[in-house]
Every structure is written in C-alpha cells, then in structure tokens.
Design a protein around this nucleic acid. Sequence first.
RNA 1: CGGGGUGUGGCGCAGCCUGGCUAGCGCACUUGCUUGGGGUGCAAGAGGUCGCAGGUUCGAAUCCUGUCACCCCGACCA
Length: 426
Amino acid sequence: MRMSIHIGKTLREIPKDVEIISHQFLVRGGYVHQYASGLYALMPLAQRIIGKIQKICHQFMQQRMGAQEVLMTNLSPEEIWKPSGRSVSLGSDMFRLQDRQKGSFVLCFTHEEPVVDMMKSQISSYRQLPVCVYQIQTKFRDEPRPRAGLIRLREFLMKDAYSFHKKEDDFEAYFNEMAKTYELFFKAVGFTNVISVKSDNGNFGGNFSQEFILPTEIGEDTILTCQKCGMIANQEVLETPSPDGACPQATCPFEKSKGMELGHIFHLGDRYTKPLGCYYTDEKGQKQIPEMGCYGIGITRLLPAIMETHHDEKGPIFPLTVAPYEIHMIHFKGCFDKAEEIYQSLIGEQLEVLWDDREEKPGAAFADADLIGIPFRIIVTPRSLEKNMVEVRRRDPSIPPTDIPVDQIINFMTQALDTEYKLYLG
RNA sequence: CGGGGUGUGGCGCAGCCUGGCUAGCGCACUUGCUUGGGGUGCAAGAGGUCGCAGGUUCGAAUCCUGUCACCCCGACCA
C-alpha cells in the first residue's frame, strides 16, 4: 500500500477527551473514527489488524478445536429470548427495535439463544455429539457507560463458540482443551502474560467459568492474588457468594491488581438447551438434554489491549502476527525510483508493504511510521544506495539496524519474517 | 441513573467573567519557493450557521432558560 493513498491521517496532537494510551494511538495514528459514544469505525490499519487477529482465531478454532464456522444474524426475534428469561433479565442492556409489522426484535447481545435455536433443528442423535460451532460476529450492547476508545464499546466483534455434549461426556476435558487453545491463541497474537482466573458467571448462570485477563492498569477488573495459597480470583467472585470462587481461607492476604478481560469461557449445563427445547436421543432411545459450553473472545478489544502492552512513547510496536503490514518502507529524497523498484519486488513476493511514497520530510515519515508500529522497516537512502545497500530497521528501538545488499532484500526479509513468525506461532 | 467536566473550521486552543466593526492563533490542507537521517523555513490561499432551540438587548460566541452530544469518576457490565 502506498501511503499517499492510504486512508488514516495521522495527528500530531492528542485529541481532547482521549486519556488512555491505546485510545490516543488509535486516534493519532488514524486507525479509528468515532461516530458516537462506544461506536467506532475501523479504518484500514485497524481493519487489517483485526483481520489478522481473526485469521489466527479461525485457525485455532478450526484446527485445534474442530469447531465449525457459522454466521448467525444479529437481528433476532425477541421471541427466542423469552424461554431463557433473558428477554427480561437483559433489560435495556439489549438494543431493541420493531419491524414494520410492529414485530419485536433485538440486536444480539450474545448468541446463546440463537445458537440453540439453530442447533436444536440439527442435533437429534448422540452420534452427533460433541459438536462445536463458532462465529466471529458483531455484538450489540447498550452499555451504561462505554469508555476508553475500543475497550468498552456498544458494537464490537466477538468470537463466540458454542459446544454441545452428551450428558455422560467429559465436558470438562473439552473445556480444558479450549482453555489451552485460548492460551496458545493469546500467545500467537503477542500476549505473554494473560492470566486465567475463576470468575463470576454473571448472567450466564452456568456452573463454572474461566476468565482470561490481561494484567493492565487500565483494566476494569480487579484481580485478587492470594499471598498464601497462590489462588487468583476476580474480585467480583468474592463479593458475590459463589461456591467455587472464594479463597478457602477468609483470612488470606490478597494482593489487588487491575486487569482487562480478553476472553471468558463458560460451562452452561442445560441453562439454554433445556428452556429452548434442544434434545438428542441417546443409545437407549431416551430423550436427553445436551450439556453446553460457550467460549468468547473480545476480538475488537484485542487491538487496544495489544497497544497497551506493546508500545513506547512514540506509538505501538505490533507483534508481527497482528501488524497491519509486515514492512514499512521509507525512502529519502532522490531515491523514489529505486524505492518504487524495491516496493514492486517486495509486493511481487506477496510481502505486505506499506510504502511511504509521500514527499514528507524524514522526521515526519519516521514519526508516522512510529505511530503505525509496523515491526520491520526498510529505509532507502542515497548514502546506503551508493554501496548498493538498504537499511533494515525494527520498530523496536532495542533491535539494532542492519545494512542489506539491495539484491538480497527479498531473501533477507523472507527469512527474517519467517523467523519472527515462529516466535509467535511456534 | 448520581457526581464532575467540555462543546468555537478536520485536530488542538484563545476570545466569554466585563455583550460592540469583516470571530483569532497553532497543526493539518492548497499553491510557490526553501529544506532534506527524526514533525525545516518563508509567502500566498481556502475552510467556521461559535452544539441546538428559545429568550434578554439597538446589538449575543459572550448574559438567561431549556435541550442535545461527548469525556472522566461511580453505579452497571461475559
């Protein structure tokens, strides 16, 4: 992509009303455009990052969990939300509207009811279980207070998976495998320190759940770490009496820290399958209610979360797996033609390159590159071209630059990228 | 929903208290020159119903009333 036609103007100044660092970078780097509180357009850079995250997510869900991708609608008849009681219990947290016939609809807050409504027409025999379907789909939530850029939104993308199991199956084994998959996924998108904690079940009413939390000061959750027994819990759990949440010793000294919820997986039991009438026939010809689990990841939220954990004072430093492009190329005055040549050869090899082909001063070009956070940088200058070299730098200032002969740049980049990808994807 | 704050070109701000010519400044934008390894300098130019509505007044960005939006704290919340 040529920067001259790229949509996403960078700003030198920090817009008013923008406090946390990821939000500042999102606005200053031209990643997002706000329409209203909790409603943001993802502009090209953000959309590319989210696209990379989704791609990785699909791989893990399909290859590791054998989940089948579906796409459920967001517009949903209120009717299917009644048997579970959530049409009432979700109250005004769920957006509601009417069609022209005055029929009542909701914009899906989550998709347990829609998925059960769909799956109950599909599941009839124990032979079909277990089965897991998932989607990456928009969620609508009429949050009382959206905040912090992309962190708490009223419309956002979520990966939500739903598994269905025979009663006598070992649900917990699948659940634990999903937890393991989550850990690998979070590592793949660049997090090194996501912790998993027992958590409150909230509105989902299942038997147990596990939350994946990124420790960060700007998080909305308070994590309690027990100094004695080492148990980790979300404060919500301890404040609402919960059978398995609380630390056994009431006298345990807890250390408080802040965290952001990135994912949450639940055992739902028959919380939804039963009221919505989802059944299968077992080996003995008996009608049974499947056990269910659901597994969410806040896809949109991962972008600000990555920025919060991967940045310096100048901008984000993206892990390669989620970077909007692999290479950011800058050329100096007098090197346009050579840069064009190098750009064409790089994209000819399917490498993802953002080329700053504008007539900007080096300072401005570097400042914008820092704000865009692409991990690899190629700099084409008269000085290095004299020696038939280009400079390869990293966004991470702690990694020293190297000069590479122009005719070896493809090989070098291909190998460097390959090595870098392996750090995340194994 | 409670508390606090802010609305003036795309972005950041001044002006408001003490009402008065064509509403200023910086960034970004356009044109020309200049500069060229970390946001160069100069010149010219374009761009605004001062959130919206009503009121007071000869006259309102400025005063009054109402209203809407956005941000922060809290409540709430996969």
